[in-house]
């Protein structure tokens, strides 16, 4: 007990004990920037040097002392339950990790010809795909023609996720002035540095190229690897870079909630209309009547190009909406 004040206040085991007793949140201390007061800074030492599980043997000692100190939780049952809960959560986590790793050992080897995935379906896709869908990139031909309904579901999942985030995080303007003022005060966005001229000039140079690159990926989706999802992510990251450089006021000139709503709904409904003919052709996606064109050209492979554009628009809008909702609580 003589050296208890030296290094252990900031050691990881001590932190674990305090978390187990419910005093601190380890994520709050470890990940965020700490703002130490002057007294704390003199006292604290470097927490990174201590090996995490060095002093497990001494746990009984620290645990006992801790029980003596604690006067907040009167009831012994609640205390026992909390401790039991924390320990069991750690054990459950480790158990799940070990079970998953153990399962990996029994997976079939990668690329083996005798794998169960190598049946007649991919052979058919690879042999007849180019002639039936007209897409040079077999993956795009698969996800946007053979299995286009599946991709429609994925786009809808994105849209629904952004709707849920909107419902949860949106700061409503009509919910009263005090509430709004409080939320505005708590938002750290107001304190971040603005009008950084270096970042603005860099964004002026980079953002157009990023947009061009994203559009290239979307339009070339049936010719080279890429497509709607990755191109939309590139477009969305370009928008986020622009927003970071110039602030919300500039982006609100062209991207508001209404624009987001219109673009997403138009893209999704066009996708739905374009692919719902398969209800009338007996679940056969392939006979759309649109000429497939010459494989390798931009304007080829029927409906794949417009569907790629739809998916790209939805993904870009969703990425940007996620960022603005988490950052500001609105668009």
């Amino acid at each position: 007990m003589s050296r208890r004040r030296d290094n252990y206040e900031t050691s990881r085991w001590k932190k674990f004990l305090r978390w187990e007793a419910g005093e601190i949140d380890p994520l709050e201390q470890g990940v965020e920037i700490q703002v130490p007061s002057v007294r704390d800074r003199e006292k604290a030492s470097d927490p990174g040097d201590v090996f995490p599980f060095e002093d497990i043997e001494e746990s009984g000692m620290y645990g006992d002392r801790h029980e003596e100190d604690e006067a907040v939780l009167k009831s012994r049952g609640i205390r026992f339950f909390r401790r039991f809960y924390c320990v069991m959560s750690v054990i459950l986590c480790l158990g799940i990790i070990s079970v998953l790793l153990w399962t990996v050992l029994y997976l079939p080897p990668f690329g083996n010809a005798a794998n169960p995935a190598n049946n007649e379906v991919p052979m058919r896709y690879l042999e007849k795909g180019l002639e039936e869908t007209g897409a040079v990139n077999a993956v795009t031909g698969m996800i946007l023609d053979y299995r286009a309904f599946d991709t429609f579901g994925e786009s809808c999942v994105l849209f629904i996720a952004s709707c849920c985030v909107l419902a949860l995080l949106r700061i409503d303007a009509a919910s009263g002035d005090r509430e709004k003022k409080r939320l505005m005060d708590e938002n750290d966005r107001l304190f971040e540095p603005k009008n950084d001229i270096i970042l603005q000039k860099c964004a002026c140079v980079l953002v157009p190229f990023i947009f061009i690159f994203g559009i290239y990926i979307i339009l070339n989706g049936h010719l080279s690897p890429g497509g709607g999802f990755s191109g939309g992510a590139v477009l969305g990251s370009g928008l986020i870079l622009y927003l970071n450089a110039f602030g919300f006021k500039k982006t609100e000139r062209f991207f508001t909630e209404r624009v987001y709503r219109r673009v997403t709904v138009c893209a999704l409904s066009f996708y739905c209309l374009a692919k719902s003919y398969s209800f009338y052709t007996g679940a056969n996606h392939l006979e759309s009547g649109i000429p497939l064109g010459i494989p390798g050209h931009i304007l080829s492979s029927g409906l794949i190009l417009p569907l790629n554009i739809c998916v790209g628009l939805v993904v870009a809008c969703t990425m940007y909406a996620f960022y603005t909702l988490f950052r500001k609580g609105g668009m």
Partner: peptide
Amino acid sequence: MISFLGVVVLCKVYTGVYLQKK
């Protein structure tokens, strides 16, 4: 591109959090 964007966003967010706390 993504790593550059990540650095920019992280720097801005952490500066904002720190200044708000202080």
